[in-house]
């Protein structure tokens, strides 16, 4: 196997894993704390990409655009919580799924009306646009390294927020026992809105980071949201650590499967059979993993300790 290609694919897997974590972390926070299934979380990812694209053209700089887009997306998440999510908290999961499915249709169509049907490519500043040499013979696009770095910074920031701040303490307390936290005089509604806004900002960030590579496009959120659900179920619903590790795992399996599974299959089956079956198996693999996890360990790989 080609060593260079392997390292590059490993980095691609890491990048996908990081992006998945950014989307899944908000999902698992909301799911774990509020027991709310939010299919529309992927639409925020898409909105992040589009808003960042527009601002990049308005300001002429991707990095500034990204920094301004973040609070905008957070505000959108806050508004979504107030308008759509809050009336549905007390309902069952079926209503969550249907209500947020409706929200996807609304948000996607609004994006269609505002930005048109075609995707928007985002130009990168020169500093991020080049290639970086990691080791002799291994050259990777600088921006991919930037994505990984930015994602890791966000992950560390989230870890710090949840585990080492007063707000994070309240979030964790709310996750274990909502009623008790309310009884102690904490405004749980405001806390929930805050969690939603944070989740939206993270998902939006993921969209902004991927947009310069894939361009901002309609439906991009619907592709990632299902994978993000796979991540939080594999990792254990409500668990940050689980979401992080499962995101990396799923990202790696998905990327490496697509890249190398046909080579592996060729070892024990004919070339044509391997080339036919490998893409199917690699696309299905993450769902296969989720089904196996759900069957043998429904609580996920790293379930939160206090539930």
């Amino acid at each position: 196997m080609d060593y260079t290609l392997f390292v590059i694919q490993l980095l691609n897997g890491l990048q996908l894993g990081i992006l998945l974590f950014l989307v899944a972390s908000g999902l698992t926070l909301v799911f774990g704390i509020l027991d709310f299934v939010n299919l529309a979380h992927g639409s925020v990812y898409m909105l992040g990409a589009f808003i960042c694209a527009s601002l990049t053209f308005a300001l002429g700089n991707f990095v500034y655009a990204l920094l301004i887009s973040l609070p905008i997306v957070a505000v959108i998440g806050y508004g979504f919580e107030r308008l759509i999510a809050r009336p549905l908290y007390e309902r069952d999961h079926l209503d969550h799924v249907l209500g947020t499915f409706g929200a996807i249709l609304v948000i996607d169509t609004l994006a269609h009306m505002i930005w048109g049907p075609a995707g928007i490519a985002i130009p990168l500043p020169a500093a991020l646009d080049g290639q970086t040499q990691l080791a002799p013979g291994i050259v990777v696009p600088t921006f991919r390294l930037a994505i990984i770095t930015a994602g890791l910074i966000a992950a560390v920031g989230l870890y710090w927020l949840v585990n080492h701040t007063r707000t994070g303490m309240l979030i964790r307390a709310g996750a274990s026992n909502r009623t008790m936290v309310t009884a102690l005089g904490v405004d749980i509604q405001a806390l929930f809105s805050f969690v939603f806004a944070i989740g939206a900002a993270l998902a939006g960030l993921a969209g902004m980071l991927i947009a310069p590579i894939t361009e901002a496009s309609l439906g991009m959120g619907n592709n990632i949201i299902i994978t993000a659900f796979v991540v939080i179920i594999v990792g254990g619903i409500g668990s940050m650590k689980g979401a992080f590790l499962a995101a990396l795992l799923i990202g790696m399996i998905d990327t490496l499967g697509r890249a190398f599974l046909d080579d592996i299959f060729k070892v024990f089956m004919s070339t044509s059979a391997a080339e036919n079956s490998a893409p199917a198996i690699s696309s299905m693999s993450i769902y296969l993993i989720m089904a196996l996890i759900l069957f043998f360990r429904p609580q996920g790989l790293f379930p939160p300790k206090l539930r």
Partner: peptide, 29 residues
């Protein structure tokens, strides 16, 4: 397999199997 799990897990696992069928047919040229 699906009926071993409940609630939101059931929703997700049925969706997972449908996605497998989806990708199966996408990959059969």
């Amino acid at each position: 397999i699906c009926l071993k799990v409940k609630g939101v897990y059931f929703i997700m696992i049925t969706m997972a199997f449908a996605q497998m069928v989806y990708y199966l047919f996408i990959s059969i040229a």
